[in-house]
């Protein structure tokens, strides 16, 4: 069972902004809390700022304004305290092609005292990866599994996963998410999992953050997001409208907050909630 501690945020951003160059803002005015425990999906289109946000929490980027905290630790100023807390799986994780998989575990044990090598070996075995295999010969899915194994065995309580599913086939995605879910349940971990494909991750997640054009558009537990929204076909005029977007058959759909009293409204799916908020973000950007 997953316990989410809403009072104790694992990840927090306050007024966070990240600017590259003079005026290209990758993130702006981000106020966000990710509670301890469970898996939170960070969803947004390409260039929404998902990777920048995750890298800021990793201490790989310094905020231009505002602050980021990981379990109360400032990643930019206290990297030594951060390292024991956080595990990270980047998009398209790169392994050392010159080394075998087992060598990666040796390296991890060298740089991370307390790295759980037996656990890592067991996990690799469970996904069919041998320590003797050359990293050069691994598929994208296997590389992601090795990277996840390294992060899980590092003893980190918080995992930040930056689009780890992007290179995986559907079967590998499912295996990856199952492994992640087991780890979260077994170790009471907090996971932030970013993706631009909602359907990939939604079944594994407990909460949802929708990021668009560098801003938080929605941050909510999934049950609340589902319970709080309705979809109306075609009608974008009633109260509580979030935004209109195109449905799978090209029909116009409108996402409303549940305050609407439209007679044709039906409960929104999570994908529709996300699409509605992304459309809202795009509209807001256009208006600005």
């Amino acid at each position: 069972m997953i316990v989410r501690d809403e009072t104790h945020p694992a990840l927090r951003a306050t007024g966070l902004g990240k600017r590259y160059g003079r005026d290209r803002w990758a993130l702006r005015d981000i106020d966000l809390s990710v509670p301890s425990g469970g898996i939170t999906a960070l969803v947004g289109p390409n260039a929404a700022g998902k990777s920048t946000l995750i890298r800021t929490w990793m201490g790989f980027e310094r905020p231009s304004v505002g602050s980021a905290r990981v379990d109360g630790v400032d990643p930019a100023r206290q990297p030594g305290r951060l390292s024991g807390l956080v595990g990270y799986v980047p998009q398209s994780p790169a392994l050392y092609p010159e080394l075998r998989v087992g060598d990666h575990l040796r390296l991890a044990a060298l740089v991370r005292p307390g790295f759980d090598t037996p656990r890592a070996l067991a996990r690799l075995g469970s996904v069919g990866i041998e320590p003797q295999q050359s990293a050069r010969a691994l598929s994208g899915g296997q590389r992601a599994q090795v990277a996840l194994t390294l992060a899980l065995a590092s003893g980190a309580r918080i995992l930040l996963l930056d689009e780890p599913l992007a290179d995986l086939d559907p079967l590998a995605r499912r295996e990856f998410l199952r492994a992640l879910r087991q780890a979260v349940v077994g170790d009471a971990m907090t996971v932030l999992l970013s993706s631009h494909v909602v359907s990939d991750i939604i079944e594994a997640c407990d909460a949802l953050i929708v990021l668009g054009v560098g801003r938080v558009l929605l941050a909510s537990p999934i049950r609340d997001a589902l319970a709080g929204h309705l979809v109306v076909r075609g009608d974008a005029t009633t109260s509580g409208l979030v935004a209109s977007f195109l449905g799978p058959d090209g029909e116009e759909l409108a996402l409303h907050r549940r305050t609407t009293d439209h007679v044709d409204a039906r409960p929104a799916t999570l994908e529709e909630v996300v699409l509605g908020y992304l459309a809202f973000g795009r509209q807001a950007q256009r208006d600005a």
Binding site: M58, F60, P79, G80, S83, G84, V86, G87, Y88, V89, P90, S92, P93, A94, L95, Y96, L107, A108, L110, V111, R112, P113, F115, A147, L150, A151, S154
Partner: peptide
């Protein structure tokens, strides 16, 4: 350049110790 620093530095308790090693 190859991207391995992302995983290694995320794992390393201390980048300084990593570089020395």
């Amino acid at each position: 350049e190859s991207g391995t620093a992302q995983i290694t530095w995320a794992l390393a308790n201390s980048r300084v110790r990593w570089l020395i090693g």
